[in-house]
């Protein structure tokens, strides 16, 4: 490497709530947008206790599988849904819960010609994490696409369920995605 040295990561610490949350953070699309879904869950530590001082951030494609970003070789897409920004952030509450209001992302082409199932990338920050940890949200009702997904196929089948958001049978448009930072049922985290 010939360039300047990378800046190391440090923990967000216990006071991230001062600097990082935004009032509109959880809303990847404005509340009430037709077709919007809510993803909610609880962040738990290695003792099973809810984590009340974490931050969940999400990044995803739009429903057509496009990004408003110039590095997408298909070109930067204009949002077809007013206010869609692809990005969400939500601090956890005292009970460890977060929620994100968004649209279901589309499937994505892979450089080698394969297809990635619809997914949302997640960064988790908290006191006690010296760097973010990264995971992915997939959707339980996309079984066929999930089975062909090149990332899910590399995950230990016994743990892959930690990456699947489950539809709430009682509430249309509500999905459950819990995050376990350590120990029993530990969420699969990725080296990105």
């Amino acid at each position: 490497m010939t360039g300047p040295g990378l800046t190391p990561s440090q923990t967000v610490g216990p006071y991230l709530g001062m600097g990082l949350p935004w009032t509109d953070g959880p809303f990847v699309v404005p509340e009430g947008t037709p077709g919007a879904i809510t993803i909610t869950g609880v962040v738990r530590d290695g003792a099973g206790a809810p984590v009340p001082d974490a931050l969940v951030e999400t990044w995803q494609a739009d429903p057509d599988g496009r990004f408003g970003h110039p590095d997408d070789p298909r070109g930067a897409a204009e949002p077809k849904v007013a206010g869609f920004r692809g990005f969400g952030r939500c601090p956890t509450d005292a009970d460890g819960s977060y929620r994100i209001v968004t649209l279901r992302p589309g499937a994505l082409p892979c450089p080698d010609g394969g297809t990635e199932a619809p997914h949302i990338d997640v960064s988790l920050f908290s006191r006690g994490l010296l760097d973010r940890v990264v995971t992915r949200i997939y959707f339980g009702d996309e079984q066929e696409a999930n089975a062909a997904d090149p990332v899910l196929r590399e995950v230990d089948p016994d743990r892959a369920g930690t990456l699947i958001a489950k539809a709430d049978p009682a509430v249309p448009g509500l999905f459950r995605f819990d995050i376990t930072m350590r120990g029993d049922g530990e969420t699969v985290f990725f080296d990105v």
């Binding site: 006690g128 743990r159 930072m181 699969v188 985290f189 990725f190 990105v192």
Partner: peptide, 11 residues
Amino acid sequence: LRAPGQPPVLL
């Protein structure tokens, strides 16, 4: 209690 116990999967 917060750092993952399992190694990360290469993404």
